[in-house]
Design a protein around this nucleic acid. Structure first.
Length: 226
DNA sequence: GACCAGGCACATC
DNA sequence: GATGTGCATGGT
């Protein structure tokens, strides 16, 4: 209990860097995002919405086998065909529609080229991505950071849950507020943002599910020992 | 069989 | 603007 009280006096920048260092020490570098090309990463970001990554991999393998993992081929494909290929990722009808929305956006504004998309100003691009049906804050930020190498911090359910449980943020903290917390308290380093989010997901998978396993969590051990 | 997964849009109040 | 609901497969 004393350790928890002590934590409240520490500033956020210390806490966030401490957490990062503990996670890096526990898990090592994560080499995210798993994906061969920026386009594949963007597709994966849409497919993984509320879905286990293992299921997304199956869908991506289907797309690769069909030689359909490129903007031109996917754009020309019927909804039914695309939905059948991505079926293992779940929500296949809604995700087929979302992929089509993204492809239309990519084709209309950037001639189907992720490289061309990358040249756009980060702030403007984020706003445009958020206008695409099916792309919300987490998906937009994942595309910006992992597919386009922009210095953007991705917030996800694990990030929020982990920091809530360790009393760094409150239950009511919004996506934007949480993202600002990372921006204000960490160096603006895209490699750090990349690694940090990946590490939070690893910790979340192991210890911070809705039914947590706190006693075994590296962060809990840190609090108890500090 | 229950729970969970690297969200988002839309309806309703 | 807050809250509830639909979307769906597959692993544990």
């Amino acid at each position: 209990m004393a350790a928890r009280v002590e934590r409240q006096i520490l500033n956020n920048s210390t806490v966030l860097l401490d957490i990062y260092n503990i996670l890096f020490k526990s898990y090592g570098p994560q080499h995210w995002w798993p994906g061969d090309t920026p386009f594949e990463i963007a597709v994966g970001a849409i497919l993984t919405q509320n879905t286990n990554w293992g299921n997304v991999e199956k869908a991506i393998i289907n797309l690769k086998k069909a030689k359909a993992l490129n903007a031109g081929k996917m754009n020309g494909m019927s909804h039914e065909r695309l939905a059948s290929l991505i079926r293992p990722a779940g929500y296949f009808n809604i995700k087929a529609k979302r992929l089509k929305s993204f492809l239309t956006f990519l084709t209309c504004h950037y001639n189907g080229s992720m490289k061309r998309m990358k040249t756009e100003d980060t702030h403007d691009l984020r706003a445009r991505l958020l206008d695409v049906n099916g792309i919300g804050p987490e998906t937009a930020d994942s595309i910006l950071l992992y597919a386009l190498d922009k210095p953007v911090f991705v917030i996800d359910a694990y990030t929020k849950r982990i920091l809530e449980r360790h009393q760094v943020i409150s239950e009511k903290t919004t996506y934007h507020e949480l993202q600002e917390l990372f921006y204000k308290n960490l160096p603006q380093d895209k490699a750090l943002f990349n690694e940090y989010h990946a590490l939070l997901v690893m910790l979340g998978k192991d210890y911070c599910k809705p039914k947590p396993k706190c006693s075994e969590c590296p962060l809990e051990k840190y609090i108890l020992n500090s």
